[in-house]
Each structure stands twice: as structure tokens, then as C-alpha cells.
Amino acid sequence: MMLEVKNLEKTYTKGALSRTPTFSLSADFKIEGPGIVGMMGPNGSGKTTLFELITGSNNPTSGRVLVQGKDIHKVRTDQRDRLAIHYHQSYQVRHFRSLKPNVMLDDAGSDYPMVHLFDEPQFNTQDGYIGFMLDFFRKLRAEGRLVFLCVHPNEQFHLEILKEICERFIFVQTGTVTTHDSYDGLIQKEEVRTYLGKLLLEEETV
């Protein structure tokens, strides 16, 4: 099993005493093998939080994330990126914290990341890089890796990219994570149609 997100919950609270929840994310899904997964959802819906939980740079309130069978939150902090790596736009992101010292944690057992999470790469139709990036995602997949591509579509070609390259989809809205096996299945959901709004209408008239 490539990735298992098991009963994962993350709740942010405010106030030291009353602890009023301000945002809560829950996810439960698994992905068996290599693939390219498209992820979308409104700003503030929890996409980046989900990526941080998968890479182990953010600790869950409850639940577990297993990458290649290893509990990411029990892997040495300096080796977590050998299992799952988070690229925010063009930079790699990592701020790992663990209360346990690394000597008490597990080895990653890998020297190249298994899961690659691309958080809103800067796509620009003028510079040609889209083509190179998509080929790179395909290469990673061919080498047995799992790729997540998070896009917040605000232009028609963003949907084209997702449709061209992704085999399955994750939609995140107000902390709720749903998985979809095809693009057509995804865009039939009412909440997805509302989210994409006029981009979908444009697509259907093309």
C-alpha cells in the first residue's frame, strides 16, 4: 500500500482554556499504487494542511498517515522527506517538529521520496514549463511514485491540465475530503460544480 490516511483529524483551536475549535479537517482514504492524483478545493479548505499531515510536518489531532506502510509521524524528522515531499510553488517546504529525538524514531528506509506533493505549481502557458512539469509527473509515476497535484483552478487551462494528467481526484471543502475515480465523476458532484462555476460552463461550450 502506497498511502493510507486513516481516520485522520486535525482540529485547530483558539483560546488556551476554552479551546474553541476554529477549523477542523478530517480525511480517510487510501491509494494502493503509483499514480497522479489531482487535488482541488477553495482557499482555506484544508488542502495545504492535508499535505502537511501527509509529509509529517504537521501533527494530527488523531489518526495516522502510513507511507509505504510506515507511520510518517514516527519516522526521524530528518528523513521524513525521503518518504513524502511537499513542494510549495517552486520551493520545498519543511518545518519538522517532533517531541521525540530522532534516535528514538524510525528510519525512512528510502533515499528518494515515494510521494511527491506539488502545491499549486506556477503554471504559465507562455513559458512552456507546463509541458516539462507534466512530463516530470509522468516520469515519477512511471518510476513507481505517487504524485499529488494541487491546483486552485482559476483559468480554463488549469482544468485541461488536471484532465490530461490525473487519474483520480481529491476534493477538499471546509475540512471535508472526498475522493473521485475520474474527472467526469468529479465534475458531476454538485459542490464541485458550484466551486468551479463558470470554468465548467466555458469548458462545456468549447
Binding site: T125, Q126, G131, F132
Partner: peptide, 23 residues
């Protein structure tokens, strides 16, 4: 990109990509 070689080839090989054609 992202500290890795994401593509390589001769200019004409790289230009044959359909997204590159559009750019």
C-alpha cells in the same frame, strides 16, 4: 525545477511537447 532535472533533450525535442508548442 524543484532541484531536479524535469526534462532534457535537444531544443527541437523539447519543442515537440504540445504545451511548449502553445507557448
Amino acid at each position: 525545477h524543484w532541484g531536479q532535472v524535469i526534462a532534457e533533450g535537444t531544443p527541437s525535442e523539447l519543442q515537440s511537447n504540445s504545451w511548449v508548442q502553445r507557448s
